[in-house]
Write a protein that binds this DNA or RNA. Sequence first.
RNA 1: GGGCGUAUAGCUCAGUUGGUUAGAGCGCACGCUUCACACGCGUGAGGUCACAGGUUCGAGUCCUGUUACGCCCACCA
Length: 838
Amino acid sequence: MTASNVPDKPTLDGVELKWDAVWEERGTYRFDRTAERADVYSLDTPPPTVSGSLHVGHMFSYTHEDLIARYHRMRGKSVFYPMGWDDNGLPTERRVQNYYGVRCDPAQPYDPSYEPPEKPGKDQVQISRQNFVELCHRLTAEDEKAFEDTFRRLGLSVDWQHTYATIDDRSRRVAQVAFLRNLARGEAYAAEAPTLWDVDFRTAVAQAELEDRELPGAYHRVMFEDIAIETTRPELLPACVALVAHPDDERYKPRFGTTVKTPLFGVEVPVKAHPLADPDKGSGIAMICTFGDLTDVIWWRELNLPVRSVIGRDGRILATPPADVPADGAYAELAGKTVKQAQRRIVELLIESGDLVGEPKPITHPVKFYEKGDRPLEVVTSRQWYIRNGGRDAELNAQMLKRGSELDWHPPYMKARYDNWVGGLNGDWLISRQRFFGVPFPLWYPLDGDGEPSYDKPLIPAETRLPIDPSSDLPDGYTADQRDQAGGFTADPDVMDTWATSSLSPQIAGGWLDDEDLFGRVFPYDVRPQAHEIIRTWLFATVVRAHLEHDSLPWTDTMISGWVLDPDRKKMSKSKGNAMTPIGLLEQYGSDAIRYWSASARVGTDTAFDEGQMKVGRRLAVKLLNASKFALGFPDAGPGDVTEPIDRALLSRLADVVDEATTAYDGYDPARALERSEAFFWTFCDDYIELVKNRAYSDTAEAASASRALRLALDVLLRLFAPVLPFATEEVWSWWHEDSVHRQSWPSAADLRAAGGRDVDVAVLEVAGEVLGQVRKAKSNAKSSMRTPVDKLVVRDTAERIALMRLASVDIVNAGVISELVLEEGEPDVVVTLAPPE
RNA sequence: GGGCGUAUAGCUCAGUUGGUUAGAGCGCACGCUUCACACGCGUGAGGUCACAGGUUCGAGUCCUGUUACGCCCACCA
């Protein structure tokens, strides 16, 4: 063990690229798949959405999971740490549209030689579905390369041999097999039902992807004969199917069971009672339309009302009115208009007819949006696929809540979000999307003699054929020329939503179906790390799929990261200039510094973006290099005992730190482990090293004790910091070892105690540090250099403390440059007599 | 409307089952070219622990209520 490789000027410059390459070459983070399940620690890594660039929040949360992975690796586990890319779905489609200036038109023929324009033109080029999908693959491949580079630079100890993408063959196969098994067991079903619909993306949207936005609107008071209703959506008047008031509302009680005629259209609609109607809202009686919002759906279902659809999937009023609405007159004025235009026009018509009372009253109200959408959602009736998730089934709902209770949540209070969500579900999980870049439903339907599909007799491929694309692959027993022909077959046109695939991330990454040996060694996983806003989506969906397929939780623990907030406490937005890009920060401060900032934040807690903390992390990493260089610069005493009380006190205290750090990591609290280690490290540098350095240089038996303690402490400190500062610790480790610090065992408190850190009053270190502080204070007050000699130092204190000081008197004299030291029992007092200036 | 979380120094945050005088870093002030580090070192100033009650010998810590902020959810006519 020599220190011959210690550089004269240690530096962090270039450590990221240097060590990433070495780790890759050595296979430092490779998963040992011969390890038994009990010796494996597996992480269900979140696959980041590949739709542009990583942001600071990614650096933050991925560092948290890496800390846990690195800790368990040092605890002797074979760590399964895969990486996935979530690249299917709408975000990718939108990015491809904007990046290349194209738009998917399934009616276009495939052009094998198609090349997108250099720069996106003013008008989007219509291209075939296959061309579009190829561009999606091309762009995501580039993005994924950039993501991997950034994550490597950040120092994630991912096994890069275990990667997946949610659109790749394996993911499509897993998603399709899992779906067909859900279908076979009755857990998946298709239904024609009112569904929230985004008119721009022209796809159905799931409950989990909704968000409310405050929008200006207006109450319009409209007369139905003598009954006044208030509505924010007068354009839905032709879709009205009933009026509803509360059963106890005396104003409307006499009218229940009667009918009234709608203004402008003259359609006779019933007046009904339902407890959901709020007597205090508007005029207390509501107009039910099919469909204005989800409340309308409830009323429509529970009161068995007919359907009168007027809004098409493009968000415009249908050309043809519902059967009993006259096509001429008012309806003709609305047909083809957007919702907004139709509202303007119908208000004019209502004013002309005298059915609008007074002026519309402006309000702002919450309106449901698709979280990635730009226009309010409409409700349209369509055929969609669902997976049962407990939204319509009390027993399954209870089972899902039980699963949530079986899971160990870090921090525990995050479980409330799960319970809240599961308890509030109001329907099954809608997984179909009317889009292109996703996992297709692996089904066809026979067409009858009239060319109508028989949805109740789907043509299902064998699992061994999967993955397939029903729009190009053929069902068994059919030929290509029978596609979309009467008597032939047709493909299910939809794709699965992204969550329907990413909810299978444990199965995809773990080799389910294709590598059951691997799967058995990693599943159920140890931990799901993720952010709190996707508990309702990704976490819950994953629990559902594992419950249905494996009758098991997908993992035993989940670690929930907080958000990165702007200094003004708002969630950090993605684009904040170059300084805030991940690569910019990694280059400016170094990866260890960014990791330090992330690691300082407690799990689950939102954290302010703070470059100050990054500077502190940088400083810590640099200090670690310099202190290590110094500690390794003393003569190596070789094996032997640590004998001096102050040296043994240091080891004893360090043993306590190791215990605390271990407990903290076991409880998913790396921030605490870091805080304790760091506090010890600064005392180690500022007090201990200062106290013992002269002795360590000397040619005595006491020198050997100091030298051994220094090296032992350094060895342990490097291991303690290895998860947080993988680059700086590896750099130092390499000065005196051939192998990697990241394959070392986690430090052992017992070893430190065995080496001398026991049966000693640790206060000796503290007391010596306090005396040294008094000397420094005197020199500082005299505005003198710390090297100024002290002619005489008199310390009076309790007998106990004086005895401890005596144990460290040689070091105190050396560190303080003291000529005469007097230690005596008495009233606590310190008198420092500095040598006169020369 | 329901739920969860947060509130401690100018800033970012610790404060483990209630226990002397509430801690750290940054920033600030004043010093120090000290032979590992100026990406450094030393010293110091700075707090009515959001507010109001309560339990207790004793409350930053436990209980009740209030306020502010953030997030999640809700049947939003």
